[in-house]
Structures are given as structure tokens and as C-alpha cells.
Simulated assay, not measured.
Amino acid sequence: MKNYGVLRTKGFFTALILTLICALMGNFLGSQPYLSLIGALVISLILGMVFQVFKRPIETSKEGIGFISNKFLRLGIILLGFKLNLIDLASAGVKTILLAVVVVTGTVSMTYFIARKFGVEKELAILSASGTGICGAAAVMGISPQIKVAESQQARQRENEVLAVAVVAILGTVFTLIEIGIKPLLHLTPTQFGVMTGASLHEIAHAVAAGSSGGPISLDTAIITKLSRVLMLAPAALIIGGWYQKTSPLIAGQEKRHLPIPWFMAGFIIASVIGTFLPIGSATLALLVKAAYLFLGMAMAALGMSVNFRVIFQRGKNVFLAAFISSVILLMFTIVVGKTFF
């Protein structure tokens, strides 16, 4: 038992070092021109996949990798709350908040419906729908803990997480380039273009990249609109968790169901309140947000280290197509809404 405990400790520290390297590299690469379009979190995930070449360290640190992908994820999402300034969101007006509610509700529902029609399994469909509708990789990882599956299905659920992240990362990048390309054809004001990019694109990095092409007003509007969608992550996690529990069969050995309360999402909201109303300096807030992306990057790297590539390629086509169709409809909707109401 003593040797086993030492092995577990060594395995945890090995996982800690490997994921930290991936996260630091991801943050650095994600800040570089062109690569910023992909984003630090997705780069960390890719690096985690690459690190699978170190088979022995990965094999001996599986428990540590599982711990990091679970606990560090929650810590990162809590700290991400400091990025949300509630006063800025409120000053954006009722229209922006209402648009975020409509976009998140409509896109998540639509993407899930289309994915299920294409034969995508329930868990993968809701994760890809959440990433498409809310805020990309962070939403996938934030919603996933609410999807309670049996122990025998844990490995498949990790595959679902990776596949859903891959879908939103690829489509987000593609649609960022599309929106920048069609900008001259749309004849939108800077505010309207910012609304369109913030309301339609998947990751914060995508909204920033596209919004910045329209100038400072467009960029500010894109960020506020996108953060309004990020704010929907907490209620969405609660609603989706409750819905999944009610519509899924009982897990073996489970006597009764409880409404899954995502307590780390409460931390997310508390962090946003603290960052908005308490006298915390901008440098401190920036440091906390950097820490959030570091912990999230480590969680994404840990997830990448447990990927089964063969299964991912086999199962990806239908969910990718469903998210693509949904993204096209979302883009058209946000163009109309932007021109009509902003």
C-alpha cells in the first residue's frame, strides 16, 4: 500500500508537470499572430494529444490526469468569472442581454435537435450544442460535469468532450474567417458588425479576432456581446443538468435523482460580482484571468492526453455537420438582428 501511495503521488506530480508545460506553451502560442485565432485552450488540448508520445509517463499518471481534468477545470471556470464585468454587461442594454438569451437557447436547442436527427448520441449532441451556442471549449467543459454517466462510460464521455471541443474549435476558426471575408458585403455599422461577431462566433478568441477587424467600436461591442453569452453558462449548466437527469435512465446503483447543482458555477458568478464591485486593481484582475486560462489549459491538456484518436475520427462526421448547419443559421440570424435592432 505504501508503494502504491508513492506511485500515486509521483503520478500526480508527473501529470501536473506535463499539463503545466502544455498550458504554458498553449498560452504563449495562443498569443501569437494567427495562432490567436485558434486560442490557448484548444492549443493546450492539441499539445496534450501530442504528449501521448510519452507513453510511460502518461500511463503511470492516469489518476493525476483525471484529477486535473476534473478539479482544475472547475477552478479555472470559477476564476474565469473575474473576466465578466457585470456593470459593462448591464450598460450594454436589455437588447444585448436578450439577444444572448435567444442565441444561447435557440442555438443549443437547434444544434442538439439536428445532431440527434443525424444519429449523434445524446451526450455528444448536448456537449457540441453547448459549445456552439455558449462559449466554445469552456462551455463544453463547463457543461460536461452536469452529464452524469456510469463508470463504464467515463472513457467514452471524455472522447465526447474532446470531439465537441474539436468541432467548435474548427468551426469557430472557419466562421471567423468567413465573417471577416464577407464584412464588406454586409454594409454593417461597426456596432452591428460587433453584435454579429459576438453573437455568432464560438470562442471569445474568435469574437475578438473578427470584431477587431471592424475597428475599436466593433471590437468592444463584440466582446460585450460575447461575454453576455458567457454569462449564460451558469444557468445553462443548471438547466441542462436537470433536463439530462430527467430524460436519462438511472445509473446502476443510483436510488434517486437529485437536481445537479453546479456549485463551481456559483463560484463563477461570485467571482464576477467580486471583480465588478470590489476595489480590485486591474492588474490583479488580469492576473486572476491569466490564472483561469492556465488552469483551464491544464485541464484541456489532461483531456488531450486521454484521447482515443481512432474513435474520434470514426464518430466526428455527423456531429460536425450538425454544428456546421446550426452555425450557418446562427450567422444569418445575427446578421438580420444586427441590422434590424442595433
Rank of each mutant, 00 (worst) to 15 (best):
residue 257 R to N: 15
residue 292 A to N: 09
residue 198 G to M: 00
residue 270 I to Y: 02
residue 221 T to S: 14
residue 181 G to T: 05
residue 268 F to V: 11
residue 293 Y to F: 12
residue 202 H to M: 09
residue 225 T to D: 01
residue 194 G to V: 00
residue 253 G to D: 10
residue 288 L to K: 13
residue 223 I to F: 04
residue 278 L to K: 08
residue 256 K to Q: 14
residue 264 F to P: 14
residue 184 P to H: 11
residue 223 I to D: 07
residue 248 S to K: 01
residue 262 P to E: 04
residue 284 T to F: 08
residue 242 G to S: 06
residue 262 P to D: 06
residue 201 L to H: 03
residue 231 L to P: 07
residue 284 T to W: 05
residue 287 L to F: 09
residue 249 P to H: 10
residue 272 S to D: 02
residue 161 E to L: 12
residue 279 P to W: 10
residue 185 L to Q: 03
residue 298 M to K: 04
residue 196 M to S: 04
residue 265 M to P: 09
residue 292 A to G: 10
residue 230 V to Q: 08
residue 273 V to D: 00
residue 278 L to W: 14
residue 175 F to T: 05
residue 192 Q to V: 12
residue 247 T to C: 12
residue 192 Q to M: 14
residue 266 A to F: 08
residue 190 P to C: 03
residue 225 T to M: 05
residue 271 A to W: 01
residue 228 S to F: 09
residue 256 K to T: 08
residue 280 I to E: 11
residue 163 L to N: 13
residue 274 I to A: 12
residue 274 I to V: 15
residue 244 Y to A: 01
residue 232 M to C: 08
residue 165 V to D: 06
residue 237 A to G: 07
residue 223 I to M: 03
residue 203 E to M: 04
residue 262 P to I: 02
residue 288 L to M: 13
residue 234 A to Y: 01
residue 278 L to T: 15
residue 295 F to A: 00
residue 181 G to H: 10
residue 184 P to T: 02
residue 237 A to Y: 07
residue 279 P to A: 07
residue 241 G to S: 11
residue 249 P to R: 04
residue 291 A to W: 14
residue 240 I to C: 07
residue 165 V to T: 12
residue 251 I to F: 00
residue 234 A to Q: 00
residue 219 L to E: 10
residue 179 E to H: 12
residue 211 G to Q: 07
residue 198 G to E: 03
residue 244 Y to I: 02
residue 201 L to T: 01
residue 169 A to Q: 05
residue 251 I to Y: 01
residue 162 V to R: 00
residue 275 G to I: 14
residue 205 A to M: 01
residue 210 A to P: 08
residue 259 L to N: 05
residue 237 A to N: 04
residue 199 A to M: 12
residue 182 I to G: 10
residue 185 L to C: 04
residue 283 A to K: 15
residue 268 F to Q: 03
residue 259 L to F: 15
residue 236 A to R: 07
residue 202 H to Y: 13
residue 189 T to G: 10
residue 189 T to F: 08
residue 240 I to E: 01
residue 287 L to G: 14
residue 204 I to Y: 13
residue 185 L to A: 07
residue 284 T to V: 13
residue 273 V to P: 02
